[in-house]
Design a binder for these strands. Sequence first.
DNA 1: CCAATCGTCGAAAGACGATTGG
Lengths: 278, 278
Amino acid sequence: MALYTAASSSERIAFNTLNRKTGNRVKREFIDSETGDPVEREDQVKGYEVENGQYVVLETDEVAAAIPDSDKTLKIDAFIPCSQIDTTYFDKPYYLAPDKMGRDAFLLLRDGMKKQGVAAIARTVLFRRVRTVLIRAHGKGLIASTLNFDYEVRSSEEAFDDMPDMKIGGEMLELAEHIIGTKKGSFDASTFDDRYEAAVAELVKAKIEGRSLPKRQAPVASRPSDLLQALRESAGIGAKVTKPKRTAANANRGAGRQKAAKPAAKAKQAQAPPRRAG
Amino acid sequence: MALYTAASSSERIAFNTLNRKTGNRVKREFIDSETGDPVEREDQVKGYEVENGQYVVLETDEVAAAIPDSDKTLKIDAFIPCSQIDTTYFDKPYYLAPDKMGRDAFLLLRDGMKKQGVAAIARTVLFRRVRTVLIRAHGKGLIASTLNFDYEVRSSEEAFDDMPDMKIGGEMLELAEHIIGTKKGSFDASTFDDRYEAAVAELVKAKIEGRSLPKRQAPVASRPSDLLQALRESAGIGAKVTKPKRTAANANRGAGRQKAAKPAAKAKQAQAPPRRAG
DNA sequence: CCAATCGTCGAAAGACGATTGG
């Protein structure tokens, strides 16, 4: 079977960090916190803090030995009724498709599960961990969701600790149901848009075109991929663009590193945590 | 309303990187990729790569201006039938509990939704983005799942591109259903254990106790939190523990940084501090 | 090339964001 990532934030606008003074990209170097000397990769070891400032040292290969062997298979443990699934455990979704070999078995699994109204609990090694996955029929194929480990999911008891054990009934409940009835809608993913992403895209576009952005204009929400397309088109127009000076010797290195470019604008964390809503 | 993280990997064993030669912790410094000079935080700006090596510069405050204002509320857009929900969009789960003020409204919402078999689609600002969340009744309270943005979820079309449009029927399907029937189980989160985590915990424990670990022993799968407890108990026994040398001048800084240390041996948080969103 | 990892920051035991492994 082949796994395809079903959800990914890779379409987001990606930035690199630059040095304002030179326009060059920035890279990070690891230095000793006491001596300030650079620490090469082969001198970096893992430390488990036993007590304040006391560490047990673990060598890279010792940690690597703990990684489970991957036989690249997906082993089904059991089939469970779809009604029993606790979605709190859901981690990431992957589409599952058959490879050349297992097409018949794949279709049998899909249709058998669909007919019985069950999902499969399976295990597979994914990124160094043995992951439990939940497999369900999904359209023409299957969808596998990795499940959080038991220790990762908190009990709701604490959160609902001082919840009154009271049930609403009678007229009040009818009123609530009426209000709910007036706001019926449907699950429409096209409304799940990302205004921050749109605003950042608009900002970049304005910069490229040499415009200044009106303060706090409400950005038009649209698919970032459309905006990326627009950005690419705008790019030719040119504006305040910084071209880093580079030495001939470094030209290749720099080009290679562009691939590593990573997403996401981190600006100031304007979000102070405790927030009241609702 | 208050939001409580329902799933977190914070109970995992966390390491710090050490310099093998000195036993000191390592920290990272940002340096200019061409000149090699350190780049201070205030000189770090975002660059959007327009073309190979050409960047549009975005200042931190410009990017920050794109962050939506948070009025700290949770606005319900609509109620949708639970049957319509596409779990491919699920991102992270949060428990929702009422604050002092809104207890009645909370219970009305919970019981009204439960009775009608619907979930609420709402919006709130979470970590700089306006997020769409799906709210459902869950035990005594509510659970809110952030939903992936539309552009983050891939169409399954590509993955299921060359899936034969064939349906299994008759005897073969019956056989499949029979096999499924023989492997019926239940959704049991206690079996969702993390063998890698357990093996790493065992490795650390062995190190602390001065044992050497048998090669590739099959680690006993148990809750990492139990293992962490065991580690704490072992810690007194002492073994090969590295104590970083520190200068008097750095003692305070070092102590301060310990807080920053991801508490590997973190005792279970009595109660996760609620993020207020309500 | 993408996605998961990893270390750090800072307060939220969570998210960011550069890096690297598959």
